[in-house]
């Protein structure tokens, strides 16, 4: 499914533009939306799932113009996980909560149950089917809210801060889930502040600032511009920072890449400069 955002302008109050002519084309690759609070990230994703309609310009989900469809109808194509699970979770049993969306979309009871069971297993909560969501921790409730959207099996899945309140295991689980959705051909968009997560999962990143797209490119390109990121208080992933501090020629995105980069750098130096330490030092500074 392709999502096209074409020259979209949006404001909640006249004279206070939130999006100032945003054009983005999402197809295939998973995309991270980065930017400070108030940059327009949440507004953008609400325009894609039809909760908001553009003031001008248009948003197309496949062949549907969002302006022509109700939110409930668009939910067949676009799933959106809200940032705060407490805004979303309302059933007294996890199973019913996760089945709510699938049933709204008209899935039969059996299909909805199977889909929900799988989604819960993906977030590691298969054992919590009969629990009350409000007996779970906030982090677990977030996983329930993720499962309840994933179970809808929509072609587009949008996450608003998926890793908030998660520990290492939770982040890993969500990462694995997103990889699985990617493999199934789902279009993934995620708003996130977690740059290590972006580098690990998302091949493409879009940086928004004050309602405008300031960078849109491969994650590697985006993180090679710390100057542009600084304005948004975004720090590149830690491995990237290390590479940049060492002056590696390539932008590295992970610990493995950093290790390879440093080894390569050393051997190149070894080959080129031998024991010329002066040269070597210059290179590493």
């Amino acid at each position: 499914m392709r999502v096209r955002v074409e020259n979209v302008r949006f404001h909640y109050r006249l004279g206070e533009p939130v999006l100032k002519g945003v054009t983005l084309d999402f197809e295939g690759e998973a995309t991270a939306i980065i930017g400070q609070n108030g940059a327009g990230k949440s507004t953008l994703v609400r325009l894609i799932n039809g909760l908001l309609k553009p003031v001008s310009g248009e948003v197309r989900v496949g062949d549907w113009n969002t302006g022509d469809f109700s939110v409930a109808r668009l939910a067949r194509r676009v799933g959106l996980v809200f940032q705060n699970p407490n805004d979303q979770v309302f059933k007294s049993v996890v199973r019913d909560e996760v089945m709510f969306g699938p049933k709204n979309l008209g899935m039969s009871g059996d299909t909805a149950l199977a889909s929900s069971r799988e989604a819960l297993a993906d977030v590691g909560l298969e054992g919590a089917m009969d629990a009350n969501p409000y007996d779970l921790s906030l982090a677990e409730r977030k996983l329930v809210s993720i499962a309840s959207v994933v179970a809808m099996n929509t072609d587009v899945v949008i996450f608003d801060e998926p890793t908030i309140a998660q520990d290492y295991a939770g982040v890993q689980r969500i990462g694995t889930l997103i990889e699985k959705l990617k493999a199934r051909g789902k279009l993934i968009i995620a708003i996130t502040h977690d740059m290590d997560f972006v580098a690990e999962i998302f091949p493409r990143a879009v940086v928004l600032r004050r309602g405008e797209v300031i960078i849109d490119g491969s994650t590697r390109e985006v993180f090679s511009r710390p100057d542009l990121l600084r304005d948004s208080f975004v720090e590149p992933p830690h491995a990237t920072q290390l590479g940049q501090a060492l002056g590696l020629s390539e932008t590295v995105l992970s610990v493995d890449e950093a290790v390879k980069g440093i080894k390569g750098h050393r051997s190149r130096l070894g080959g080129l400069a031998g024991s010329d330490t002066a040269h070597d030092q210059q290179f590493f500074q």
Partner: peptide
């Protein structure tokens, strides 16, 4: 916000 979250999961509110 809560209403939005439910509509996003396909609930008809109109």
């Amino acid at each position: 916000t809560i209403m939005d979250a439910q509509r996003s999961r396909g609930m008809e509110t109109e």
